[in-house]
Computed example of a mutant assay.
Amino acid sequence: MKLNEKFFQAGANEPENVQDVLVENEKIVWNGKPQKKAFVLNNVLKMLPIAIIWIAFDSFFIAMVAMNFSALPPVAIPFLCIFFVAHLTPVWVWIYNCATASKRQKNTEYVFTNQRIIVRKGLIAADFKSIWYKDIAAVNLRYGLVDKLVKVGDIYVTSVGKATVLQDLDNPATVEAILQDLISSQKADVSYTDNAKVTYVKCKYCGTKNIEGKSANCSACGAPLD
């Protein structure tokens, strides 16, 4: 596998697009983004109940402090201000998520290549994450309440002890089917016969499973197993 060497050179620019991080012989099969309406709505509603409870709770105590402000010692005022600013952290997080949702949706991109999944995210600088098909253990499709309302879905990809969520996708069942086909075409099947490990290679032309190393060609159609 040949990497793009220009990004390892001193002074090289950071990659901005998915095309900048592709390796030799890697081709894009599918690419997409979260649906904007669903992404923004999910970010607004995600912590909204917590934010409302926190605001109501802290507003009550701030009002109580204000009513007795004249009785407070001067040294307590800065302490109380710092305390309430820190205590309202869940509200600040919710406001941040709401304010940046549109920008984060714009910068998010999901790409399936013939070798891996590439996830591009970032509010300011682009951040790229790769999930190689050979490392994927499970792919699951899930629908939340908002997802059902706006007709999108989330794909959960589990690999090597961690999970990645492809959020708010249009036509999620179709996208999942494309991903499953790519995983099947790249990932060798493994079974155990008489306590011996047997690895199978799937022919990309006819789909027949062949024992790895037994032959260079498919036993069904004769195509090369590369």
Rank of each mutant, 00 (worst) to 15 (best):
V152E: 06
K46P: 00
V65T: 09
K204D: 08
A99V: 03
P74L: 11
K151D: 12
V40S: 07
V150H: 07
L166M: 15
L179P: 13
F83R: 07
I28M: 05
N97G: 01
I118S: 10
I28K: 02
Q105V: 03
N195A: 11
P15C: 07
V85S: 06
F7Q: 04
F79I: 15
D181E: 15
W94H: 07
L166Q: 09
I95Q: 04
V160R: 09
V190W: 11
V201M: 11
F57K: 10
L48K: 05
P15A: 08
V40P: 01
A125D: 14
Q180N: 13
L88P: 02
K204H: 07
S185A: 14
T164P: 04
N107R: 08
E16P: 04
I62N: 01
S219I: 13
V40F: 13
E176N: 10
N43I: 06
I117A: 07
K129C: 08
I62L: 07
F128K: 10
Q19F: 06
N4Q: 08
Q115H: 11
K103N: 05
F112D: 00
K37Q: 14
I50K: 02
T89G: 02
S102G: 05
S70I: 05
L169D: 05
Y192N: 11
T164Q: 07
V111G: 04
I62K: 01
A196I: 10
G144S: 14
V201W: 04
F84P: 02
S159G: 06
T113D: 02
G144Q: 08
K151L: 06
S159Y: 15
N13A: 12
K162S: 15
D58E: 10
C81T: 08
I178W: 11
N42M: 12
R104H: 02
L80S: 04
